[in-house]
Nucleic acid binder design. Structure first.
Lengths: 128, 128
DNA sequence: CTAGGTGCAAAATGTTTGCACACGA
DNA sequence: TCGTGTGCAAACATTTTGCACCTAG
């Protein structure tokens, strides 16, 4: 069971109050102002709990290490939550998407789009 | 100036040959098959060089540490490659995007879209 | 020859875990 | 009270750096 804790409350309310995307270290520094003897480990533990519960979003590429892409041609990915396979979605929305963010004042070089769900094969199996 | 090196060539050609998005460690293991005494440090150094030169893409959220988002409503991200800030793009293309992949036979639960490029502020600085 | 590249090991960063104690239901 | 949460320090994982040697231009 998830018990209430002052530390977790403070972390969540800090994250809800800002529109930046702070790192664990930044969150630690900020929350420390309210709870001076909080530890960094507690911050990490609660960030993990909160994102598992869907109350916050962790922005990573899955693992803790960077990933590198040698592919220049535009394509997207579909990650199946059943079979864990990663499928290529051969689609290119570069013009549409980039013109949308360009209108907002950004200069986009590229983008990444990933879908999560169930693939064709696993859909079949679910029906059967 | 950038000198040619067997190690860098091998890393680049490996990355161009796969459609996965390997970590530095994976790249190291693979390139080691061709150049057995390559070191992990060399892999890191060359990955950095190659991505600085735009020959490959590093997929991260800027810093080497995770970032956390208290905003769970549907929105996208813009990662500035200069200042490393992550900006919210308040846009929701769920209906459009999901109907596209549904037509391909997938059953999408969600998706993630992030742009990379240069933000408004850094565009200004580049011009100056 | 010389600036840049390399391997190695150590250091620097970022994150997780073991443990004993503290706290909320 | 009992199971969860916490702080601390140590362990781990990932990435960077200092250094002496090597290599392409």
């Amino acid at each position: 069971m998830l018990k209430k804790s002052m530390q977790r409350d403070e972390i969540l309310s800090y994250l809800k109050s800002v529109n930046t995307h702070p790192t664990a270290e930044t969150i630690y520094m900020e929350v420390k102002k309210a709870i001076p003897d909080i530890s960094l480990a507690t911050v990490y533990r609660n960030l993990k709990l909160l994102s598992e519960n869907g109350e916050i979003l962790e922005l990573t590429y899955g693992s803790s290490s960077s990933r590198f892409d040698g592919n220049t041609s535009p394509h997207y990915h579909f990650v199946c939550e059943k079979c864990k396979n990663v499928y290529d979605i051969m689609m290119d929305l570069t013009d549409e998407l980039h013109s949308m963010v360009t209108r907002e004042g950004y200069l986009p070089y590229g983008h990444r789009l990933e879908f999560f769900g169930v693939c064709k094969d696993c859909c079949q199996k679910l029906k059967a």
